[in-house]
């Protein structure tokens, strides 16, 4: 294992994050604050409590998940797509590193960025609502797992994408709708039974539910199922990445 190479990729990617700190950090914080204002204050004042939690606090885990999933995906996909686009990928291919080290470097950096943004949003939310975290370790674990698994997904998208449009396609058309429909801003128990059953096919439901459990000790689905779902999703992403590694798909001719 070439640890020095992993560290180099990680540092190089993190440098990009800090170079563009304004857009990296300010925009998610700003948009989250807007969600708080619109959903928490305006709509939340009409909704009393959801599952015993004030609506303003109830949406915090969903908001963090929404941002973390999109950030992890877009950072990782951009991270590996950009070298492909500008041609610097030659360096990764001709260095004494295996694909595994490349994945750890890029996915690690993208996950770190998303985690960082997630924690900043959590800190921001303390200014708006009063929240307590029932299971802090489980909360951090869910957050880290989500960051890593969606960064893995982003990495796959970045390898697959042939242009910038495709890079945006999956986050925009798949992830955002799944997150919005995954109970970010509501409890799925608020839906009619038919929709509750359909929603169970949305993997994001399990992630948000598990994450919300870590905050409020209440969940739409049992925590064990949430953990299993995120584990399964991570395993699927790893499987695809392993296949890319074996075949050199879209990287090595």
């Amino acid at each position: 294992m070439n640890f020095m190479a992993i560290a180099s990729i990680y540092r190089f990617e993190m440098a990009r994050f800090f170079r563009t700190i304004t857009q990296s950090l300010v925009s998610p914080v700003l948009s989250t604050s807007l969600y708080f204002v619109v959903f928490g204050a305006a709509i939340g004042s009409r909704i009393d409590e959801v599952e015993g939690v004030s609506y303003g606090a109830f949406i915090v885990p969903g908001l963090i998940m929404l941002t973390v999933m999109t950030q992890a995906t877009s950072n990782a996909s951009f991270g590996i797509y950009f070298p492909k686009f500008i041609g610097t990928i030659y360096e990764l291919l001709s260095a004494p590193i295996s694909f595994i080290e490349v994945v750890i470097g890029y996915v690690g950096a993208a996950a770190t960025k998303a985690l960082f943004i997630g924690l900043v949003i959590l800190a921001t939310s303390f200014f708006f609502v009063d929240i307590q975290i029932a299971h802090p370790i489980a909360m951090i674990s869910f957050l880290v797992l989500t960051c890593v698994s969606f960064a893995l997904l982003g990495f796959i998208i970045g390898i697959w994408a042939g242009n910038f449009e495709q890079l945006q396609l999956i986050p925009l058309l798949v992830i955002t709708p799944l997150v919005f429909l995954g109970g970010s801003f509501y409890s799925i128990s608020m839906l009619p039974t038919v929709w509750q059953n359909i929603t169970l096919f949305n993997p994001v439901v399990y992630l948000i539910s598990g994450f919300r459990w870590a905050f409020f000790d209440t969940a739409d689905v049992p925590v064990a199922i949430s953990l299993f779902a995120i584990g399964l999703f991570t395993a699927m992403c790893l499987g695809v990445i392993w296949w890319i590694f074996k075949t050199g798909w879209r990287i090595r001719q």
Partner: peptide, 24 residues
């Protein structure tokens, strides 16, 4: 390489350091 493939926003020093790191 034949093509000039470089990360445009990085500094010369950082990009050369990166290459050395990739080789462990």
């Amino acid at each position: 390489p034949q093509e000039i493939n470089l990360e445009p926003f990085e500094t010369v020093m950082n990009t050369v350091r990166f290459s050395r790191g990739l080789f462990g």
